[in-house]
């Protein structure tokens, strides 16, 4: 524990700016993955253990598209779209068969897909790590705000992630399709009885969740190493986010992801030996105090 260093940091504008940006970028990418996870759980009641795989495949897809086209935008779009399509196929071919089934059966199917995809990645892209590299347009020096360091690329990532999250939240809250999704989360039988095609709806929701994870993978690809199995660590953190935020809550996921990001960035200064532990500790406290999570009642 180095609480003196933490106190010094929070009272210094440069440290505050640098660490807050750092926490936000970690948090926002985590939010994109966790938002998909929580959306799928909220509507389909599926705990998608294969969600990290979408993140991994999105990153690899972006890597390949970037190598061919040299366009980061195209790479990110391809990652999102590719994972959306993959999500539909996955949902129709496998997940649709275990709706309402034992959670162990769901876990088994998801885990099988994780292992298969990890091996496929090894076959297609190789077992060694890959790096996409920073697109030339973002190879610019960082900005200095109030003495703190803020990389322009991270401002873009935070903005894009916020826009996607905000768009998703507004779609769910204000549009007709959003209302149908929310209704399906509450009472799927009633939605079905009203003549709405729930099969299509479920595919759409699953595809959206997969797309969000794919987008996160694509957005993060320039600064992260691509390895088979890279989805695992982000999956664990996404689950923590989902539990803290409340299973099924997009707003909860946003807040929890940012909290985790900030725990990481300030924790590494104040309690470097206990940063990971602190994330789990917060989760345990939330589970004890409010078992449904911060926004647990606010089911999408």
């Amino acid at each position: 524990m180095d609480l003196a260093a933490l106190a010094e940091c929070v009272t210094s504008s440069s440290c505050l700016v640098t660490q807050t940006t750092s926490g936000l970028i970690v948090g926002m990418l985590l939010f994109l993955v966790a938002a998909g996870l929580t959306l799928i759980f909220g509507v389909l009641k599926i705990v998608n253990f294969a969600h990290g795989t979408f993140y991994m495949l999105g990153a690899y897809l972006a890597y390949s598209v970037f190598r061919v086209t040299d366009s980061y935008t195209l790479a990110v779009v391809a990652a999102g779209a590719g994972m959306g399509i993959f999500g539909i196929v996955f949902e129709r071919a496998l997940i649709a068969r275990v709706y309402g089934a034992n959670v162990l059966m769901q876990l088994l199917i998801c885990y099988a897909v994780v292992l298969i995809c990890d091996d496929l990645v090894k076959i297609v892209w190789g077992a060694d790590f890959k790096a996409m590299g920073m697109p030339p347009e973002f190879q610019v020096p960082p900005l200095f705000v109030a003495g703190g360091v803020v990389p322009p690329f991270y401002i873009l990532l935070i903005t894009v992630a916020l826009a996607i999250g905000g768009g998703l939240g507004l779609t769910l809250a204000l549009t007709k399709i959003g209302k149908i999704v929310r209704a399906a989360a509450h009472n799927p039988n009633m939605v079905s009885a009203l003549g709405i095609n729930t099969t299509l709806l479920y595919s759409l929701v699953f595809a959206t969740g997969a797309m969000l994870a794919g987008l996160a993978g694509g957005l993060a690809a320039p600064v992260r190493s691509l390895t088979p199995g890279m989805g695992f660590s982000i999956l664990i953190e996404s689950f923590i986010v989902t539990v803290i935020g409340g299973m099924g809550s997009i707003a909860g996921a946003l807040i929890a992801a940012v909290v985790l990001g900030l725990i990481r960035s300030f924790g590494t200064i104040g309690f470097p030996m206990f940063t990971e532990g602190m994330m789990f500790l917060v989760m345990i406290i939330i589970l004890v105090v409010k078992p449904s999570g911060l926004f647990g009642r606010e089911i999408v």
């Binding site: 660490q19 940006t21 750092s22 970028i25 970690v26 991270y154 890279m230 200064i269 470097p272």
Partner: peptide
């Protein structure tokens, strides 16, 4: 300053900013 990130950690941003501080 000494930082000890986990092996295979996806993001080292907080480690980098700690070093910069």
């Amino acid at each position: 300053s000494q930082a000890w990130p986990k092996m295979g950690q996806p993001d080292f941003t907080e480690v980098i900013t700690k070093i910069l501080q």
